[in-house]
Design a protein around this nucleic acid. Structure first.
Length: 616
DNA sequence: GTAGGGTTAG
């Protein structure tokens, strides 16, 4: 007899809509056996099938007992599968030409649709079997749609989602709260679907914590964190008790905003309301504290918690990396391996970025090697990115270039931009210029490429060329991502953009900025006007620098907080070198600790110095 | 047998 292992691949390779439909139309060719004892023993065997080989063995057993058409066994077989290979195997078995098509019912199809809906790469097969089900005249029930909608959510196609929505209405399941909740989630996962989600949400007669979480989660996924927080407030007003999943989402909105005060409030709310702190919620808390600036609190939570997963370890490692505490990140990574938790690709991204941010070049090399050789992880562009960044920060531009040339993947724009910045910083201007030109050809609408080229020309003193870049950007209608800085004060979040005049205190803020400017000059600060990408004279350039959103936010904080209070701000982009050097002076002149979170990492300014050691 | 969630290079 042919072994199942050699026969299986052939079976599941042929699963497509066409073959499934064909096999369904084969006439029933056998009868159901009524051997209850055999049936029970098969079910018991299936119950303990946690690996593929065991499933194959059970398959043989089922065939031997002639139970391949037993409906109970068939459905159990389908629901036993958890990995794709097993699901394919089970479904090809169920829908083989030898199966009795009279046994196909809603339950059986639901089982197969559910199994595929839970996979990551074969959700389309869930829809395929759903269509076969309808084509075969088997009616869906209220359990069918949550599975189908989940598959649609994974596929992210708005049109597909809308058409399934139509069927939900047609079959009259649109009044079921489970179906409605999954519908909200499905629309949230589709590109351009958020307004449809909100419409379904707004029209729901009764909202439970799952409904609110689905909608809040949709906003969080889009990065609409303020809206997510706003919706959470509405949920509280509606008197719906949030659960641990809602709190994970609210925390991730705080993390995204860098809203430390709000995050701390959420933590106390969790304690006060007695929300169950499971691993995911603890992870979210750790991530929030690390990314809102209190990595020591994150470490404490980490030390106090049991049942850590790889995500828990990675969150702390990434947090330490962002704070430039590379050596601690490395020793935590070693501790993790020591406790038997196997690192995954994400953990290595965290570790390598920690090495890069702390100049641990030798460690970085060692772990990159270890990842490939010992842990058999194929490096992704993110890993290469960390390595290139690490060499560049350390001034090893030649090494970085060589590394890029030997990569097994084509460098992406992020890697190229890292290289270009390094070329500029270390005087490889010609090379930097040529890479940038190539990059602009590939990505003509990306603003930062032009900024890079302009900065290179500034350093080369090619002023006409620099002016031309500005003109080119205008001609191409480039959209500039506005730099903005966020600051929390008295439970409110204030956001400043460059040249912002919308704030009620605007007049005082600008007077404060001017005063800061005078004090800075007196202390020996020189504005870095080459950073300004505008064709204006030097004095206006200084003025433009003074209106940067970080300076406005710092002025606002100096005006509205007691002397000596630390200032925490969050910038949406990387902090510019002029603001970086100005903030060092400000921390000294005004005797304030200033904590800046920018797009990449934290900067702790104190007594005229920054924790990043000017390497960022 | 049904729904919502955590870590990812610059």
């Amino acid at each position: 007899m042919q072994s199942p292992a050699t026969r299986t691949p052939k079976l599941f390779r042929t699963i497509t809509t066409a073959t499934v439909t064909t096999s369904l139309h084969n006439p029933p060719n056998s009868t159901t056996t009524g051997n209850r004892e055999a049936e029970q023993s098969c079910l018991a065997l299936l119950h303990s099938c946690n690996t593929l080989p065991k499933l194959f063995q059970t398959h043989n057993y089922i065939l031997k007992l002639g139970l391949q058409n037993n409906p109970l066994v068939l459905t159990k077989f389908a629901s036993t599968s958890s990995d794709l290979e097993a699901i394919d195997y089970a479904s090809s078995f169920i829908f083989s030409p030898r199966s009795d098509t009279r046994l196909y019912d809603t339950f059986l199809f639901n089982t197969v649709v559910r199994a595929y809906a839970q996979t990551t790469h074969s959700r389309d097969r869930a829809l395929c079997f759903y269509r076969v089900m309808l084509g075969y005249g088997v009616l869906p029930n209220k359990f069918t749609y949550p599975f189908v909608l989940k598959a649609c959510a994974g596929l992210g196609s708005l049109n597909l989602g809308k058409s399934v929505h139509g069927s939900v209405v047609k079959f009259g399941f649109d009044d079921d709260v489970h179906v409605q909740n999954t519908m909200v989630h499905m629309y949230c996962c589709c590109n351009g679907g958020i307004n449809y989600a909100r419409k379904v949400f707004d029209e729901m007669p009764k909202l439970d914590s799952v409904s609110w979480s689905a909608m809040i989660g949709g906003y969080v996924r889009l990065g609409w964190s303020s809206d997510a927080i706003g919706l959470f407030r509405k949920m509280q007003m509606a008197g719906v008790r949030p659960d641990e999943i809602t709190m994970v989402l609210v925390l991730s909105a705080c993390t995204d905003l860098g809203a430390f005060e709000l995050g701390k409030w959420v933590e106390s709310y969790i304690e006060k309301e007695g929300v169950q702190k499971n691993v995911e919620l603890c992870n979210a808390l750790i991530d929030m504290f690390a990314k809102c600036g209190d990595v020591d609190k994150a470490l404490k939570l980490f030390r106090d918690m049991g049942g850590r997963t790889i995500v828990t370890w990675t969150s702390v490692i990434v947090g330490l990396a962002m704070h430039g505490r590379g050596l601690e990140a490395v020793s935590l990574f070693e501790e993790m391996i020591g406790t038997g938790v196997a690192p995954d690709d994400v953990a290595f991204i965290g570790l390598l970025s920690a090495c890069s941010h702390s100049g641990l070049v030798e460690n970085g090399r060692k772990y990159f090697d270890l990842m490939i050789k010992r842990f058999k992880i194929v490096p992704k562009i993110e890993h290469y990115g960390c390595m290139v960044d690490m060499f560049c920060r350390a001034g090893l531009v030649k090494e970085a270039l060589e590394f890029v040339q030997n990569m097994h993947i084509k460098p992406n724009p992020i890697v190229l931009r890292t290289l270009i910045s390094a070329c500029r910083a270390h005087g490889e201007l010609k090379l930097g210029e040529s890479i940038t030109k190539q990059l602009i050809r590939n990505e003509p609408m990306h603003e930062s490429n032009y900024v890079l080229l302009s900065n290179i020309y500034a350093k080369m003193s090619h002023w006409e060329k620099k002016t031309k870049i500005r003109e080119l950007m205008d001609k191409r209608g480039m959209k500039k991502i506005p730099g903005s800085t966020m600051i929390e004060l008295d439970n409110k979040i204030y956001e400043f953009v460059a040249g912002d005049k919308s704030h009620g205190q605007s007049k005082e803020i600008y007077e404060m900025v001017d005063e800061m400017g005078r004090e800075l000059k007196r202390a020996g600060y020189a504005p870095t006007t080459s950073e300004v990408l505008q064709d204006i004279d030097e004095e206006d350039k200084e003025d433009a620098l003074n209106r940067h959103s970080e300076k406005l936010a710092i002025a606002f904080a100096l005006l509205n907080t007691q002397p000596g209070t630390p200032i925490r701000i969050v910038k949406n982009l990387r902090v510019c070198s002029d603001c970086h050097s100005a903030t060092k002076f400000i921390s000294k002149i005004y005797n304030r600790e200033i904590v800046v979170r920018d797009r990449n990492r934290f900067h702790y300014f104190k007594e005229g110095l920054c924790s990043c050691g000017d390497f960022w």
